[in-house]
Amino acid sequence: MNQGDILRVDNLVTSFDTEFGRLRAVDQVSFTLGKGRTLGVVGESGCGKSVTALSIMRLLPKPSGVIESGEIRFHGEDITKISNVEMRRIRGKKISMIFQEPMTALNPVHKIGKQIQEVFQLHFPEMGKQETMQNVVRSLKDVGIPDPEKRINEYPHQISGGMRQRVMIAMALACRPDILIADEPTTALDVTIQAQILELMDRLKKEINMSVIFITHDLGVIADICDDVLVMYAGNVVETAPVFSLFEDPKHPYTQGLLSSIPRLETPRKTRLPIIEGMVPSIQELPQGCRFQNRCPDVMEICRAQSPEMTVVGQDHSARCYLYSNP
């Protein structure tokens, strides 16, 4: 583990017990997260981004979801092994998470103030009532909610989606966590609100020097706010690189496909954007060999026979592809 790394995931395997048997939603995922850095996680729907995040939080749906093997080292300690009680002290205090749906993520029957206050009560039980309330108000102010003294007495249905996501962020950042995991936090919001929330997250991140895992479909967002990128495909990591190298010189054919499907200003209008043909194989019927073979423009003989390993292809840059490694 590097000095600056705050989280290191090693060969994480997370499975679900389903009617089709035990399925691996996340397979041999490894990555590191540096202190104060933002790691973007991209990939098509169903590739295991959320499951990876939930595994780190140990919030997998019970009893079907299990971490089968691998390590998740937080400050060097493997949090897959610690007790539930110890994990509870980490959740919400050291590692926080915000979710995609601000509409349903807050409890409809409790006031906003009460829901934020609960975080302080949990993690700082010695804090007095008055101080807690001051902190609640401050945390709402931090996320740019006007009139926080008034808002604390409102219920989630009384405020807009963007405001709710701000409340979620306020709640997640209440204890100044080391890591914030944001699972598509802006997908459900409209574009202007999206930009505001991203800016807010970026500012707060710098203020408290926290690390962020940012899950998204949107490569534009990645380019804006991330330092490093993790590209996932069908439960695997297929490429990881600093954001600059990834956009400059994508290695994996899947990453290349994703990047070429972003509209750019310099492309003339009306040209059709290339899309990646075909479908992601479902985790029930993964092919032998490389999981991207059926859609890969550069597919070779070997890809159908054997699975490639992650190979170093540049400075902090690796890809899982036989174009860069010999079997």
Binding site: L59, R91, K93, L106, H123, M171
Partner: peptide, 9 residues
């Protein structure tokens, strides 16, 4: 929201 509550700790 129950997941949120557990994520809070």
């Amino acid at each position: 929201y129950v997941r949120t509550a557990i994520a809070k700790g």
